[in-house]
Write a protein that binds this DNA or RNA. Structure first.
Length: 393
DNA sequence: CCATGTTTAGTCATAA
DNA sequence: TTATGACTAAACATGG
């Protein structure tokens, strides 16, 4: 039935991280890490990394003594003010950042300049819609977002999505409905309005390897669904034209018809459980924190190797930083390990929340693989992506 | 009416 | 080569 497809090759846009040809140098605009200039995350950053503790300093600078923390912060806040600007602002960002923190050699600046030449403010970010939605939810105040809030987060974070809104917003809605990792949470009576909140399924909070939003470990599938729920219907078979008589149990009424067996009001057991957990949020959060704490304490991925050769846990590092700054320590503000943690450290090098500057930094440090990948493997196996490997800082 | 939500289906790229 | 994941379009339902 390919003749019935309304699609044209010109309209179809693959995930840009797959395609070097479509992506090219533009990939350099975006950090391999989540956007950091969104108000929610800005708050997270501000809450967690005011100044580098001694251990953090040694991690970032090795034996080299940096300028003092206030200088770095000053540079960072300057950068925040020119956030979302394009190549013009990048120049000053780089200068400020490198003045205070980086080994400022001419080769590095040349690489940054070359990179800057190829800068494109409207490049498609290398994140899937699932990644974007997850970011929006995880960075929201209550780990829940309305559809409109998700839209807003994406547009705030990525200029690319300020255009063609109808197309990608349709995809966002489809992703929310189609993927088990997202669950609807009804509005409470004191918060009337249209649409539900969307949250991550309780078992889907760690979908991305080491917190890296470029790669999902595995498609999240809810295993506890009732037999008649949508998982039991092999969507993939239908999508790829392998029809059988069983499929008609859900598609007998034709394209676009909602299945009576999986209507919005027919929530499966675990979804209802999640709703209850959300309603009893304080207890739920407490339990989650306890569980995660016990996991983190044993998780080898938490480890970072310092330039000095010693090993330290990101969580421990963060705790030390919080104590250093006389701030409350919340191990769950960030995931327990990098690249969030690495991101927070990079922030202190004076790049502020400017993703372009961050990328320029990466490009200058790892010009051979940082932003001109020959395949998706270059992304996925990039050393900067994983806390399990030695940090390039 | 329109935003939100569900579902089907085609296509492409990548992983296995 | 096949299976899977992601993106896109579209029809249709629902509810404020």
């Amino acid at each position: 039935m390919s003749s019935s497809s309304p699609k044209t090759s010109g309209n179809y846009q693959t995930n840009c991280c797959y395609q070097q040809s479509a992506y090219g140098n533009n990939v350099g605009q975006y950090s391999l890490l989540p956007p950091t200039h969104h108000p929610h995350q800005q708050q997270l950053v501000n809450n967690n990394a005011q100044a580098l503790s001694p251990t953090s300093l040694s991690m970032v600078y090795g034996n080299q003594q940096p300028t003092n923390a206030s200088t770095m912060l000053q540079a960072r806040y300057q950068n925040e003010q020119i956030n979302e600007k394009t190549s013009n602002s990048l120049t000053s960002t780089l200068v400020n950042g490198q003045q205070t923190s980086m080994q400022n050699n001419s080769a590095t600046l040349t690489a940054a300049t070359n990179y800057r030449r190829n800068f494109n403010a409207c490049a498609k970010p290398p994140y899937s819609y699932i990644s974007l939605i997850t970011m929006a939810i995880q960075l929201s105040a209550n780990r829940m977002s309305t559809l409109a809030e998700i839209y807003q987060f994406i547009m705030d974070s990525f200029p690319y999505y300020r255009q063609n809104q109808q197309r990608w917003q349709n995809s966002i809605r489809h992703s929310l409905s189609f993927n088990d990792c997202f669950v609807k949470v009804p509005r409470s009576p004191d918060r009337p309005g249209k649409g539900s909140y969307w949250a991550l399924h309780q078992e889907a909070t760690n979908m991305f390897e080491n917190g890296c939003y470029l790669r999902r470990q595995k498609r999240f599938k809810c295993t506890k669904r009732l037999q008649h729920d949508r998982d039991s219907n092999n969507n993939n078979s239908r999508r790829h034209g392998i029809n059988n008589s069983l499929d008609k149990s859900t598609t007998s009424t034709g394209s676009g018809q909602r299945s009576p067996l999986s209507s919005a009001s027919d929530k499966s057991c675990d979804e209802q459980l999640l709703v209850l957990q959300q309603q009893q949020r304080p207890n739920y959060m407490q339990q989650q924190q306890q569980q995660q704490s016990s996991l983190e304490s044993l998780d080898s991925r938490d480890l970072q190797v310092l330039p000095t050769g010693t090993t330290i846990g990101i969580k421990q590092l963060k705790q030390e930083q919080c104590e250093f700054n006389q701030m409350p320590f919340d191990p769950h503000t960030f995931p327990g390990y990098s690249p969030f943690a690495i991101n927070s450290l990079i922030m202190h090098q004076g790049f502020g929340d400017n993703p372009a500057a961050l990328n320029a930094y990466y490009a200058s440090q790892l010009p051979q693989t940082a932003f001109v990948p020959s395949s998706s493997s270059d992304y996925y196996h990039h050393p900067a992506m994983y806390a399990t490997q030695q940090s390039t800082l």
